[in-house]
């Protein structure tokens, strides 16, 4: 193998490691110092990571049992009275996030396809709007939905929370989906059009299937973010002690239940927070791993 070919095989790390000059003591010292600082920066990140995860697991795993998952909460009367489970919050999380995802999928597909197909003023405005929404504070979406629903109907309903979560899910998923469909090779598209297929057919049969793994990556990522959101749903879903199984009724999600329990005067409820936190992290992690699996698959497919 020639030297040039060998260098082409290297990762950036190996290039600077194997080929950089070793001469000049002072320069070398400075360089090593720089790398030491970078190592410290990386290690510093792992402190809170270890801190958070160990806290959740150590304090939470006692709580995770069948009763905790399936029983309804019981308002405690003393420090030792039983507090039941969190079935209400699990049901609420499923309802609120589930409906949000059901609505988000068609919306995201429509908007992404529309942005892919058009290059006029309107499309530019929408694309910038989406980027703005990605960065907007989640609490403002909660306020907006509260203003147009709860202020009008004077009732809390689970699906209001889904509406608020749409503002979290759709922008993130759309940004990912546009990137996904724009990375479909132009030759494939031209081949489809060249065979006389209509643009809609090319979209349905060529672009979307080709980009599917990356599209799913985006969806699972945004779902894992939506699952943990408290601020957008806080004002609109109210709270319940029993699962309602009805999106037109109030609901409690895992994050809002943690938020509510954490201020409790009963130690048992604060303890239950860690159980819910562990449960929530496991669920969020599940969707995150799913998204990574599809990302790896799309990378493999694209060579």
């Amino acid at each position: 193998m020639t030297v040039a070919a060998a260098i082409d095989q290297m990762t950036p790390r190996e290039i600077i490691r194997r080929t950089s000059q070793k001469s000049g003591q002072r320069r070398q010292l400075l360089s090593n110092l720089y790398f030491a600082v970078l190592t410290i920066a990386l290690l510093v990140i792992f402190i809170p990571l270890y801190g958070v995860l160990s806290t959740i697991v150590v304090r939470g795993y006692h709580s995770l049992n069948w009763t905790f998952l399936t029983a309804n909460p019981i308002p405690p009367t003393s420090a030792t009275s039983p507090i039941g489970g969190v079935a209400n919050a699990i049901d609420g999380t499923l309802e609120v996030t589930g409906i949000a995802v059901l609505l988000a999928v068609p919306l995201t597909i429509l908007i992404s396809v529309a942005l892919f197909e058009t290059r006029n003023r309107l499309a530019r405005i929408v694309e910038q709007g989406i980027e703005i929404f990605v960065g907007m504070p989640a609490i403002t979406f909660g306020l907006f939905i509260a203003a147009i629903t709860v202020s009008v109907t004077h009732k809390f309903e689970a699906w209001y929370g889904s509406m608020a979560l749409l503002f979290i899910v759709v922008p993130v998923a759309t940004v990912n989906m546009i990137a996904a469909i724009r990375s479909v090779p132009q030759t494939l598209i031209e081949a489809g059009l060249g065979l006389g297929a209509r643009p809609s057919r090319v979209m349905m049969r060529i672009i979307l299937p080709t980009a599917l793994p990356r599209i799913l990556t985006g969806f699972f990522l945004s779902v894992s973010r939506a699952l943990g959101e408290t601020a957008p749903v806080l004002f609109v879903i109210g709270g319940v002690l029993v699962p309602s199984f009805n999106p037109r009724l109030p609901a409690t999600t895992l994050p809002t239940q943690i938020y509510a329990y954490f201020g409790s005067q009963f130690e048992s409820q604060v303890q239950a927070c860690w159980g819910m936190a562990l449960l929530l992290v496991i669920i969020v992690l599940f969707f995150n791993v799913l998204s990574r699996i599809f990302l790896a698959r799309s990378k493999k497919a694209n060579g």
């Binding site: 990140i45 792992f46 809170p48 990571l49 801190g51 958070v52 995860l53 806290t55 959740i56 894992s224 973010r225 699952l227 943990g228 959101e229 408290t230 601020a231 994050p255 943690i258 938020y259 954490f262 927070c273 860690w274 936190a277 929530l280 992290v281 969020v284 992690l285 995150n288 990574r292």
Partner: peptide, 21 residues
């Protein structure tokens, strides 16, 4: 992956951890 793990922890959990620990 570990760094990204830090990104997916919901903010309510960071709040609880910050307060308790």
């Amino acid at each position: 992956s570990l760094v990204e793990l830090l990104a997916i922890v919901p903010s309510v959990i960071y709040g609880a951890w910050g307060f308790i620990v």
